[in-house]
């Protein structure tokens, strides 16, 4: 019950932030969703040209593919888990469980490959902070600019995906009793909740950056 309440509160608050953020940055939620699916469509339509690409283009294509498919799988897993657990207050079972466990290993694999492909470019640098010390002011506090925030979200996502995976994998081995299993399930659920919130932030920040670029 607590998880349901917290999920509704935090996801609600994140969505509220997203709506306001979108308004402030002149883009709409629908635009954001359309842009995601358009990118996916374009990417899949472009697969046939993959052979003709240069090495760097192939790498870019792969990065984009892994990123978009990971997000898509995350969306599928979020829907398949949140509908029964948050909306109906039930345990994950039936067709939702089937979808969830089918998408899970692919998501894990794509996320791991995405982490290898993207981590280098998501390293923090001085351009990610808005108030670095200068000759006139040596005062320093970590204030990220939009680029920095987006990188922070990325690293938090990678970080919290580890307990998400470990908790579910430990559940599958005869190592923990009922209390332990319930504890692991809680870790899995709350890690997932954090990831959902991070993805909402990520979507907003990326869309804002796209908008400002265009």
């Amino acid at each position: 019950m607590m998880y349901r309440i917290l999920s509704i509160l935090f996801i609600g608050a994140s969505l509220f932030w997203l709506f306001n953020f979108a308004k402030k940055n002149n883009f709409s939620i629908m635009e954001m969703i359309n842009s995601f699916f358009n990118s996916l469509n374009l990417l899949f339509a472009d697969i046939k040209n993959f052979k003709n690409y240069k090495y760097s283009e192939k790498l870019n294509f792969a990065k984009k593919l892994f990123y978009l498919v990971t997000l898509l799988l995350f969306l599928i897993m979020t829907i398949s888990s949140m509908i029964p657990s948050v909306l109906f207050g039930d345990s994950l079972s039936g067709i939702f469980l089937l979808i969830h466990v089918t998408a899970a290993p692919i998501f894990a694999l794509f996320l791991a490959v995405s982490a290898i492909l993207y981590s280098h470019s998501f390293q923090f640098n001085k351009n990610d902070f808005s108030n670095l010390p200068t000759e006139t002011s040596t005062k320093f506090s970590i204030i990220f600019n939009q680029n920095g925030k987006s990188k922070l979200v990325y690293w938090l996502f990678v970080l919290f995906s580890i307990p998400l995976m470990i908790s579910t994998i430990l559940n599958m081995f005869p190592l923990f009793g009922t209390d332990g299993q319930l504890f692991l399930l809680e870790i899995h659920r709350y890690s997932a909740l954090i990831l959902i919130i991070l993805v909402i932030f990520h979507s907003g920040l990326i869309s804002a950056m796209d908008k400002s670029r265009s």
Binding site: A108, A112, A115, S119, W155, L159, M165
Partner: peptide
């Protein structure tokens, strides 16, 4: 799905390991 369960375990363990290495490395 239980037929593929060992694969699922293997993939998730490997993925979690990769992510841990990436996090620690960076």
């Amino acid at each position: 799905t239980f037929f593929f369960r060992p694969w699922l375990k293997f993939i998730i363990i490997i993925s979690a390991l990769i992510l841990t290495v990436v996090i620690i490395g960076y």
